[in-house]
Design a protein around this nucleic acid. Structure first.
Lengths: 418, 418
DNA sequence: TTATTTTTTTTGACGTCCGAAAAAAAGTTG
DNA sequence: CAACTTTTTTTCGGACGTCAAAAAAAATAA
């Protein structure tokens, strides 16, 4: 049953819309906010005056009006107060921790990559390492620790949102690495753990909502095969936050050996080790751990394909066909409007494209083959952190909504942060 | 961007909550409504008084209070006015049109099954036939045609919600049968076309929301293989309303010939013709049209399995394994909390169960194998119409919300329909 | 200086919810 | 049978949110 509505809710929602508009479109005058949000000028004034009191936004007195001064009362721009809060975005990948600091306006102002040893990272050692790494990173910025309100973490592999642990990831040797609990305790900030491809999905929606809305899927070819789903206009993460394990959905019963131990997963045909295995005529049952692939191996394979090497070309072609079949299954089950292909391995897409379309054609019923598009998106690692920041901002706005209206308006002190 | 909120919205939502409570829980007093909805007694009085004025609800003066008369002012029960509106629910299946009439309280008060010839039904002939069949059905009831506000139609196969056409269905020989446009015109009522398994999904949620909420999938084994998805607490139908074509997601590349013309669809291993084909040692490439299976064929096969016939048992066992693989893919992609198996073919489930679990185990990564349950639900054709009615009621409530408040309260005429 | 234009704020009206108090409609008790 | 108790429903006044319209503010144009 839907919850009852009351007038608090409507203020909350309208406040949040105004904050979001300022974050997405940058500083603007009240009258513009009214236009964008369709709220009346009176309401905009009321809400922004609230937000000013809270120090969440501030007026800009720019002495240089943009262009030819028009007449009439000049618009006074409002912008988010960047110092109102601070969020940390962290991407955990093989051998590297990528961190970003972003302000309340959603602007990233500090990035850092810190290497670590994935092979020795487990549940016992990693949380402490992560805390220290973050603490030192935050220390570098002139940021008061208490202004950090949200920490978003993305990891490749299987993450469990409920428990806040990385169940399994190529970035760790151990399993069930706790992330959320230790970070929450150490930094006294909200912490959320997400799957990396989900964050790419969120980032795409943030960056181009006109194109990336409604129902679309993102497939990332990288170390493994990841997927993110945006369904009915929101990120879908499954009942346990473990949805979208596209890479481990089965392609051929009893087929090639996958890193996960099962046979015939899509990943066992599509990922770095699978491609190297196929191109070097190793049997499908060769243990992925014994294959030395990775970024370097993949690059070598691409080079061979570029030179016209038959084995390499065949390997890519069969991988493409598997991808086509996988996408066909996805299309049949979810009927998305769009599928976005991205990830480091997309450099090799030109060798897979034709056979991917063949696979799609073989596997997909005519009736479902009309209503979708495939985007190929050049890989940009930054997307993951951008998605984390976008998500953190949403949560931040919601946090501040509770602390909304005060009855007795204190003397105004506009422009300065609280 | 979320839409702005205004005060109309809150009244609308609260009205809708009250209507829904009355429909779900039956007649009750204002004080109970307050408890359930968490609205204050004052608000409940205000809203119900509105609804009484509109004739959507009515008071009951039951002279027989249920049990030992307690003291205090007796509660005066309110109920939905059953005559406030009327909806038609229609299920199109092979050779039969099943129809129900339901009142505003969601109670079905007339059912009818009318046979028709699926083999000759196409886009040219069927819409007219359907209109006449409905008109005659409605004529049998003492229902004024203009009181029919919603018509919900469910069909097996691929339906396109956007165009309101049945793209392909075993119930028709032709393709692209228009349904929504002709019915809307003929009856001047809202008409919505849905996939049949989606309506089962909706019905389950309506009947037992505690169990069937959040994220679950329904798989129906019948003439074909259908699926319905409830994701993040709402029915998911895909970008074009064509989602959940589970039956035509591929199982084995180049595998058994499916009715859709492709090779290796799940349906080509699981449906009536597939089972008969397997049990009679016909090659996998045998055209499904040449196999005489259907309900009778399936029943015969079950009888043989009951007698211990090896061929039949083997056929069911391999079908079970395919089902297991299909469910494993679904679990990997969507991570649902629950999967419900139902449909006419579930009578044979005992012959498939063991191998289904084998398939699940073979295909599903350990990490995903913990957090779901499988329900086996005895098949009940009525579910489809119940889901249609539930959906129609939701839409009905929304319709009435627009026509809500009037400033000048007319003289009250409580108890009588408008 | 005065008129005009444009943006922002204030004012007043209306609608909604809520808490408190009142009213209503019984049963219970002396 | 009248006074009291109990429970439900209604009424009233207050708080708050949005909006339209009026007023104020701040700049340019004449």
């Amino acid at each position: 049953m839907t919850r009852k509505a009351d007038r608090d809710q409507i203020r909350r929602q309208n406040r949040s819309i105004i904050l979001k508009a300022l974050r997405r479109q940058g500083p603007m005058a009240r009258i513009d906010l009214g236009q964008i949000t369709r709220l009346s000028p009176a309401t905009v004034t009321a809400i922004t005056s609230d937000l000013l009191d809270q120090g969440l936004i501030e007026g800009i007195e720019s002495d240089e009006p943009k262009a030819p001064q028009s007449r009439g009362r000049p618009r006074s721009l409002l912008r988010l107060n960047p110092e109102a809060a601070c969020v940390v975005a962290i991407r955990l990948s093989v051998n590297a921790i990528d961190m970003s600091l972003a302000n309340f306006a959603g602007e990233t102002f500090l990035n850092k990559r810190v290497p670590f040893d994935s092979a020795s990272a487990d549940a016992a050692s990693f949380p402490m390492l992560l805390i220290e790494t973050i603490a030192s990173f935050v220390g570098e910025a002139a940021v008061r620790p208490e202004s950090i309100r949200e920490i978003g973490v993305a990891a490749q592999g299987v993450v469990d949102k409920g428990t806040g642990m990385v169940v399994w990831s190529p970035a760790f040797s151990g399993r069930n690495i706790p992330i959320v609990a230790p970070l929450t305790k150490a930094f006294e900030a909200e912490c959320i753990l997400s799957n990396d491809t989900n964050m790419i999905t969120e980032a795409l929606h943030w960056i181009d909502p006109a194109r990336y809305s409604d129902t679309f899927a993102v497939v990332m070819l990288d170390y493994g095969v990841g997927m993110g789903l945006y369904l009915d206009n929101r990120l879908f993460e499954g009942a346990n936050g473990m949805a979208a394990e596209f890479g481990h959905s089965n392609h051929i019963p009893g087929g090639a050996l996958c890193r996960c131990g099962k046979r015939g997963c899509i990943e066992a045909y599509l990922s770095d080790y699978a491609l190297v295995r196929a191109a070097t005529h190793l049997p499908e049952t060769t243990d992925p751990k014994e294959i030395n692939a990775g970024v370097a191996g993949l690059a070598a394979l691409i080079a061979r394909a570029d030179e016209g090497d038959e084995d390499a070309l065949t390997a890519f072609a069969s991988a493409g066909r598997v991808l086509g079949y996988g996408l066909a299954r996805l299309l049949a089950i979810l009927d998305p409007k769009r599928i976005v292909l991205t990830g480091a391995a997309m450099r090799a897409f030109r060798f897979m494209e034709a056979s991917m379309h063949e696979g799609l054609e073989e596997a997909l019923v005519e009736d479902l083959r009309q209503n979708y598009e495939i985007d190929v998106m050049p890989w940009n690692e930054d997307f993951i952190r951008r998605g984390l920041v976008a998500q953190a901002m949403d949560r931040l706005d919601k946090d501040y909504l509770g602390a909304a209206t005060r009855k007795t308006v204190p003397p105004r002190d506009r422009g300065a942060a609280a």
